[in-house]
Computed example of a mutant assay.
Amino acid sequence: MSTFLSRLLASVLMIGAVAAAPAAYAAGTNDLGDTTVVLTHGAFADGSSWSRVIPILEAKGLHVVAVQNPLSSLNDDVAATKRVIEQQTGPVVLVGHSWAGVVISEAGNDDKVKALVYVSAFAPDAGQSIADMIKDLPPAPWAKELHKDSAGYLTLSDKAIHQYFAPDLSPAEQRVVAATQGPWYSGCIDEKVTHPAWRGRPSYFVISTQDQMIDPALQEQMAKHIGATITRVHGSHVSLVSHPQAVAGAIIEAAERIGHPAQ
C-alpha cells in the first residue's frame, strides 16, 4: 500500500472514531442497567397488575421487581417493600399504585431509593391517613360495593370492578381483575405516615383523569403538594393496565434523571 493510501486510511479511521465517540457517550447515558424499579401494588390487586408495564421497563434495560404486598396493614406492606429494596445493589425507583402510595411514602425513606413514582395513588403528608385525606369529600359510590369478611378484609364486587375500578378494560380482563383481587384490611384506611419520603426525594405522579376510585381532583392536589412531575393519562384507576406505555414512560423518566438531575 502506498504512503498516500496509508495516510488516507488512517485519517478516515480517526475521523470515524471521533464521530462515533458522541454516539457511544449518548448510549452510555441511557444505560439504566444498574437501576432497579420496585413496583408496589395497591388494594384489591397483586403484583400481576404490573404485567404490562414490566416488559416496557425491562426493554429499557431496567431491573424490575414487583412486591407482593400482604395488604394486612401499613407496617406489613412497608416491611414487604423494604425487604425487596434491601436486596437491590444499585439505586431504586420506588413506584406505588393506589393504596401503595401510602406504602412508598413510608418505605421510600431507605437510602437506596432515589425517586418515587405515584400512579393513581395517595400521597399523604406526615401524620396523615387516607381517612384524613378524604374526610371532606362526598362518599364514593363504589364504597357501597365493598364486602367485608369476618376478619375485617375488604373486597370489591364484580359490579364495582366493571363500573368503577377498571371500566376501560375488556370484560374478560375485568373478570381476571375480579378473580385475582387481593383482600385489603379495612384498618389500613386509618393508618398514618410518619415521615413521607417525598420530602427528600424527587417525585413523579401519574394522574388518571378518568379515575372513579380516587378523585382526579384529589390526585392533582396531592401531586402539586408534593412538587411532583406530573403525567396525565386519560384512563381509569388501573391506567397501569389500560395505558402501560404512559405509566412506564413516567417511571423511565424518573430512572433516567437519577444520574442526571439537571436534565
Rank of each mutant, 00 (worst) to 15 (best):
Ile226Gln: 15
Ser208Met: 03
Asp168Arg: 10
Glu220Arg: 13
Pro138Leu: 06
Ala10His: 07
Gln181Thr: 09
Ile54Ser: 07
Ala179Met: 01
Ser157Tyr: 09
Ser157Glu: 06
Ala45Thr: 08
Gln210Glu: 14
Glu86Leu: 05
Asp31Pro: 13
Val65Trp: 09
Gly127Met: 02
Gly28Pro: 13
Ile258Leu: 14
Ala248Pro: 11
Val67Phe: 13
Ile230His: 01
Val103Tyr: 10
His260Thr: 05
Gly200Asn: 15
Asn75Thr: 08
Val18Ser: 01
Lys82Asp: 10
Pro244Thr: 08
Val93Asn: 05
Ala19Lys: 01
His243Glu: 04
Tyr118Leu: 03
Phe205Asp: 01
Gln181Ile: 08
Ala80Asn: 08
Ser73Glu: 01
Ala262Met: 02
Gly182Pro: 11
Gln88Thr: 14
Ile56Asp: 03
Thr35Leu: 13
Gly227Glu: 05
Ala151Pro: 00
Leu39Pro: 05
Gln181His: 11
Ser186Trp: 09
Val53Leu: 00
Arg52Tyr: 03
Asp215Arg: 02
Ile130Phe: 07
Gln128Gly: 01
Met133Thr: 05
Pro202Leu: 04
Ser105Phe: 08
Val102Lys: 04
Leu116Asn: 02
Lys82Pro: 01
Ala115Asn: 09
Ile134Phe: 08
His63Gln: 15
Thr3Tyr: 10
Glu220Lys: 09
Gln221Trp: 11
Thr40Phe: 06
Ala123Glu: 12
Gly61Thr: 12
Arg201Met: 09
Lys135Met: 04
Cys188Arg: 12
Leu94Gly: 06
Gln221Pro: 04
Gly259Asp: 14
Lys114Glu: 10
Trp198Ser: 05
Gln181Phe: 14
Gly101Glu: 05
Leu39Tyr: 11
Ser129Lys: 04
His195Trp: 02
Val241Trp: 13
Glu58Phe: 12
Val95Thr: 02
His225Tyr: 11
Lys82Cys: 00
Asp46Gln: 00
Gly33Asn: 13
Tyr153Cys: 02
Thr89Leu: 07
Ser51Asp: 12
Val193His: 10
Pro138Cys: 06
Thr35Phe: 12
Phe122His: 02
Ser48Asp: 04
Val119Pro: 07
Ala179Val: 00
Tyr185Trp: 14
Leu13Cys: 10
Gly28Glu: 15
Ser150His: 10
Asp76Leu: 02
Ala26Asn: 10
Thr155Met: 06
Ala66Cys: 04
Leu13Ser: 07
Val12Gly: 00
His234Met: 00
Ala79Pro: 03
His195Tyr: 02
Ala26Trp: 15
Ala166Phe: 10
Ser48Phe: 08
Lys135Ser: 11
Ile230Tyr: 02
Gly61Pro: 12
Ser203His: 06
Ala79Gln: 09
Leu5Ile: 14
Ala123Tyr: 13
